[in-house]
Design a protein around this nucleic acid. Structure first.
Lengths: 223, 223
DNA sequence: CCGCGAAGATTGCGGCAGCATTACGAGGAC
DNA sequence: GTCCTCGTAATGCTGCCGCAATCTTCGCGG
């Protein structure tokens, strides 16, 4: 899962990114609305976390702009202004949820899950493939109800594949699911993850196969 | 718009119904979970307002029950228990939002609007031809829901044809779809791709045919 | 109806891009 | 310390794809 965080307090932003990465969430961060819009054009985010008070203007103004461009990415507004009437204001311009600072990361996670649960096709609560059950929201994997713990990056690869099981996932999509734009990649790191993931899956008897489509991407299916 | 209100405090329920009716919202009201489930079977609601503390049990238990029955009706949980951790709990079982009592009717309205705005269906960008479904965006092809993996160039040819199925696609258009300017072509490479693609499609029983229009181009149609 | 030329279809071959695998070492967690 | 993760790079291999040679089909004129 990949988020865009629009927030001008660097400390909060760093802390949030760190906390979210423990949940397997890749976060891109910017402090300016102008950059934010450009980023949404270049990437596909699962959700956007938006601060209201920003150096170059009121964060809420970003929402209609984004919606007008056709994007329906869920937006959660983060703010110190947490009066009921202000919440109304935020929700009415097109935000999907509103979270007053300070907040618990756990609550943010829960609201994220709630907001993302909407499109059922992309965010099935649990995905079953072969003898394996994958929960891409909580990032847990079980084989025959026995938990299987995977390294973080392999887990992200698996979750991205599972969300589109039986369909090809572009190589670039996988890269975006695992790395943010600051983490440059200049080797076959992704291939290595795939390889190690394959080994772990067969060792665990997961009953699935990670298939390669040369020049296109990968595909997860039962074997 | 029609809501189901599951709430045991009669006074609150009456007041809410009255307030909502001013917004043109029709409200069905019940105090018991058992009735609630039956009501959802008989009617279609745009959203459900659910109290947590109910005479016949914990309101939250209603959510997985409803979800399991296949309904994705938005649910807003109303409760006096408004601690962050409890909100997490509510959202995690499948609620779409969580509202602590007491609340302003205006805020409820705003949250209703937010929840209902979430898109019911993502734009289907899939093309069906014969027994085959093509997703030109994600470059994936399935035959009778079984994935069919094609080499990159053949995939590009197929996608270009599928986007204009039953219509002729100029040879030059196909070349543009498969090759960029740097990749000069000076042989019948495209013909070769067509040929190999045809073979793969018939082998897979895709139920489609690639016809040639001599001197003009090609055309994809069901066979 | 036949013959001819051009467009298309098919297939084998070889080069090489892309992928799989593995070892190694740096860095982090405990 | 020990164990695990993860980026890097070297190695070997697979099969895509451009090419070209050959065969087939199509359209047209006589």
């Amino acid at each position: 899962m990949r988020l865009l965080l629009i927030e001008d307090e660097r400390e909060l932003a760093d802390a949030l990114s760190a906390a979210l990465s423990k949940h397997g969430i890749v976060t891109d961060h910017t402090m300016h609305l102008a950059d934010a819009f450009e980023l949404t054009r270049q990437n596909t985010y699962d959700a956007i976390l938006l601060d209201r008070r920003l150096p170059d203007g009121e964060g809420l103004s970003f929402i209609p702009m984004l919606r007008r461009s056709g994007a329906d990415t869920p937006i959660i507004v983060l703010t110190a202004r947490n009066e009921p009437l202000e919440r109304v204001e935020g929700l009415d311009v097109g935000a999907d949820d509103y979270l007053g600072k300070p907040f618990l990361v756990d609550e943010l996670m829960a609201r994220l899950r709630a907001v993302l649960r909407r499109p059922p096709s992309l965010t099935e609560l649990q995905i079953t493939v072969g003898r394996m059950v994958i929960d891409p929201l909580h990032l847990s994997v079980t084989v025959e109800s026995a938990p299987l713990d995977l390294p973080r990056r392999e887990l992200l690869v698996l979750a991205a594949l599972a969300k589109r099981k039986d369909k090809t996932v572009l190589r670039s999509t996988l890269e975006a699911a695992v790395y943010n734009y600051e983490e440059e990649i200049q080797s076959n790191a992704l291939d290595a993850h795939i390889s190690r993931l394959r080994k772990r899956l067969t060792d665990a008897g997961a009953g699935v196969a990670v298939h390669n489509i040369r020049g296109v991407g990968y595909l997860l299916k039962e074997e």
